[in-house]
């Protein structure tokens, strides 16, 4: 999967627009600054890291080179980070909403466990296996949780969906046969402003029933 958002196929996406309008300018100036005035240090695992370095992250089973600073969160590295050659990482499945560990939209699996990517430094992800929603399944081969979300129409605006899907996949990995209460608790770190909770709970229960959740 190329990491693009649903709707990219139409030739226009909100993200492209935003990137052109504002986001891109900020990101490129940041990286540009780092490579001109403050060349990346050789190692992201130096005893003290300051300024930009190239970190090797393990994302969705692939080694990923990304230029980060100590303050770069894992979420920002995935969404807005660039490889040393300037190529965008562009894994935009994890969403940046509250950016304070309060909403769950940025949920990724960290060694198989759900965490908020906005609340982890990218440099703290070195040596850990990261799975984003892009790594769970794709359009041709949906993850059972994704399949169940489709079957149960478990989304409205869809912005919280990647976070819910990843949190649910993490839950079923740890507990393949959760009780309804355990599903509620397991998804207690994700918010849906549209209020699709009942269908989300049905979908996850269904994914668990089919026994393919993990």
């Amino acid at each position: 999967m190329d990491g693009s958002e649903p709707g990219d196929g139409q030739g226009f996406s909100r993200r492209d627009f935003l990137r052109g309008a504002a986001t891109g300018a900020v990101v490129s100036s940041l990286v540009g600054q780092a490579s001109a005035a403050d060349p990346p240090a050789p190692s992201a695992s130096a005893p003290i890291v300051s300024g930009a370095v190239t970190a090797q992250l393990m994302v969705n089973g692939h080694r990923l080179q990304v230029v980060v600073e100590p303050r770069t969160t894992l979420l920002d590295a995935l969404r807005d980070g660039k490889a040393p050659d300037g190529k965008p990482i562009d894994l935009t499945g994890a969403k940046r909403v509250c950016d304070r560990g309060a909403c769950g939209s940025c949920t990724v699996l960290f060694d198989g466990k759900p965490v908020y990517a906005c609340s982890v430094l990218a440099l703290d992800a070195l040596g850990h296996a990261i799975t984003t929603v892009e790594g769970l399944g794709d359009v041709d081969r949906l993850h059972p949780v994704q399949e169940a979300f489709v079957q149960h129409d478990a989304l409205m605006c869809g912005f919280c969906t990647p976070g819910f899907v990843v949190a649910a996949a993490g839950l079923l990995k740890a507990n393949p046969h959760p009780s309804p209460e355990e599903i509620r608790r397991g998804l207690g770190g994700n918010l849906c402003r549209c209020g699709t909770y009942s269908r989300i709970l049905e979908a996850v229960a269904e994914a668990a029933r089919t026994g393919k959740g993990a």
Binding site: S45, A46, P47, I48, V49, S50, G51, L123
Partner: peptide, 19 residues
């Protein structure tokens, strides 16, 4: 977030030193 440096101590004593 403002820029900061990230130190990675190998022992609790070194952490104290770095703090």
């Amino acid at each position: 977030m403002n820029a900061f440096e990230l130190a990675r101590p190998k022992s609790a004593a070194e952490a104290v030193q770095l703090l």
